[in-house]
Simulated scan of single mutants.
Amino acid sequence: MSRFSESERDRIRTQLVEDGSELFARYGFDRTRIKDVTESVGIGTSTFYQFFDSKEALYVAVLHAERERLESRIDEAVSGADTPREEVETMLRTTLREVRSNPLASRLIVEGELQLLYEQLSETERQSIGPDARETELPYASRWAAMDEVRYDDPDLISGLLRSLIFVTRAQDSPIGALAVSEYEAVETALIETIVDGLFVD
């Protein structure tokens, strides 16, 4: 029988995800130990297993929370757009900015770590995190696909097209032909303009 009340359990689980997020972002999955997280939260290592079955399960919960946070930021940014074309451009700029500045967002989107780790979890762990952890369709893709001014009517194709642009962020750190900041920004802007122009029918 757990010695924690329901409100205490909610608080501890939330703190495990929040502190785990900071540690995973700073040190990565391999270098972050369960002990590091539990010490940060102020609980014993054995208590950790009342909340998560493994470090992998915690990391998936962290990445799932990161995806929800990212989608919320995109929603907020896109809500100010006046046209579908501006929505796509805003979504791309917001996503690329997050991927460049946030290690967890990069691991989530570019490395696909959420989907990879999700496959390793038990069905019970998956249900506790959320059944939508492997969704591949981008927000708004279905709505854009239904618009007459959009060239393609397949949401998966639109998602793949826009997601492929995210990989341009790797150009900054490429061991061969790495781009300086100013060069990268020019390339990113040009690619966004090219993708958006090609997505919409004149």
Rank of each mutant, 00 (worst) to 15 (best):
residue 85 R to W: 01
residue 88 V to D: 06
residue 57 A to H: 05
residue 82 D to Q: 15
residue 11 R to W: 08
residue 36 D to M: 07
residue 176 I to V: 13
residue 144 W to H: 08
residue 62 V to Q: 05
residue 136 T to C: 12
residue 55 K to A: 02
residue 103 P to K: 05
residue 185 E to I: 02
residue 197 D to N: 15
residue 84 P to H: 10
residue 112 G to S: 13
residue 197 D to H: 04
residue 156 D to F: 06
residue 17 V to R: 04
residue 196 V to F: 00
residue 174 S to H: 13
residue 91 M to H: 01
residue 173 D to H: 10
residue 37 V to A: 13
residue 11 R to P: 00
residue 148 D to F: 00
residue 200 F to S: 03
residue 57 A to S: 11
residue 179 L to I: 05
residue 80 G to N: 14
residue 34 I to T: 14
residue 148 D to Y: 05
residue 39 E to N: 14
residue 34 I to E: 11
residue 197 D to W: 00
residue 95 T to H: 05
residue 170 R to I: 00
residue 67 R to N: 10
residue 134 R to M: 08
residue 186 A to C: 12
residue 165 L to Q: 09
residue 35 K to P: 02
residue 19 D to Y: 08
residue 89 E to M: 04
residue 8 E to M: 10
residue 47 T to N: 06
residue 22 E to M: 08
residue 179 L to W: 02
residue 60 V to K: 01
residue 182 S to Y: 09
residue 87 E to T: 09
residue 115 Q to D: 11
residue 105 A to C: 11
residue 170 R to A: 10
residue 6 E to L: 15
residue 7 S to H: 15
residue 38 T to Q: 07
residue 113 E to M: 11
residue 92 L to S: 03
residue 64 H to R: 10
residue 162 L to I: 08
residue 159 S to A: 10
residue 14 T to Y: 15
residue 95 T to M: 12
residue 130 G to F: 03
residue 151 R to F: 02
residue 102 N to F: 06
residue 145 A to R: 04
residue 26 R to S: 12
residue 105 A to W: 00
residue 23 L to Y: 03
residue 119 E to D: 14
residue 62 V to M: 09
residue 125 E to I: 00
residue 93 R to C: 00
residue 58 L to Y: 06
residue 60 V to A: 09
residue 140 Y to H: 12
residue 182 S to F: 06
residue 28 G to C: 08
residue 129 I to W: 05
residue 52 F to L: 07
residue 75 D to K: 12
residue 143 R to G: 09
residue 37 V to T: 07
residue 18 E to D: 15
residue 161 L to G: 07
residue 148 D to Q: 07
residue 198 G to H: 09
residue 150 V to P: 01
residue 122 S to L: 10
residue 113 E to N: 14
residue 41 V to Y: 03
residue 191 L to P: 00
residue 103 P to D: 13
residue 122 S to M: 06
residue 122 S to F: 06
residue 178 A to C: 12
residue 78 V to L: 11
residue 95 T to Q: 15
residue 37 V to H: 10
